[in-house]
């Protein structure tokens, strides 16, 4: 019973997080989805090392406990959590920058802006590209400009 609750909890967190990432229309909520999903994955990892009726893997009164939980997944989770923290911090920095630039974190608005900017930078003519036959496309000489170190 306990096992079922724990696994269901962990997997649910994972799926809720992933669904949140895919369904949200706000970039910050997408990031929160990632955070939740990471928590779920970390829980799965901890559960992989759990043993019934075991103690923590710490020396006590002259010996390690006879029955102890697996220390390896705990170490892995420690690593995974720290990795997650680093990535989340970087993501927030990126979000701050995006909001400064576009004034919004709404997915649709930001994505539209992105497509316009990209087409502009790469020299694709914006309004005509919808109607022009695609065969007119790439030109080797029309691609300079993007990239900062050449």
């Amino acid at each position: 019973m306990l096992a079922a609750i724990l696994y269901v909890g962990a997997v649910s967190l994972l799926v809720i997080g992933l669904a949140g990432m895919l369904l949200s229309s706000h970039l910050f909520r997408m990031l929160l989805g990632l955070v939740i999903a990471e928590a779920g994955a970390n829980l799965l990892l901890v559960l992989a090392g759990y043993r019934w009726e075991s103690a923590a893997p710490i020396w006590e009164s002259g010996a390690y406990p006879q029955l102890m939980v697996d220390p390896v997944p705990q170490a892995m989770v420690l690593t995974a959590i720290v990795i997650g923290v680093g990535i989340q911090a970087l993501a927030i920095a990126l979000l701050v920058r995006i909001r400064q630039q576009t004034g919004s974190l709404q997915r649709d608005i930001v994505r539209e802006q992105l497509e316009q900017d990209l087409d502009l930078e790469l020299g694709v003519k914006l309004p005509s590209s919808m109607h022009a036959p695609s065969g007119e496309g790439p030109l080797l000489s029309g691609t300079r400009g993007a990239g900062n170190e050449q």
């Binding site: 893997p57 710490i58 020396w59 390690y64 102890m68 220390p71 390896v72 705990q74 170490a75 892995m76 420690l78 690593t79």
Partner: peptide
Amino acid sequence: ANLVTAVVLGYRGLD
């Protein structure tokens, strides 16, 4: 005394 520490810094130090 803490085996998790032994794993984090010893066995899996590269991680």
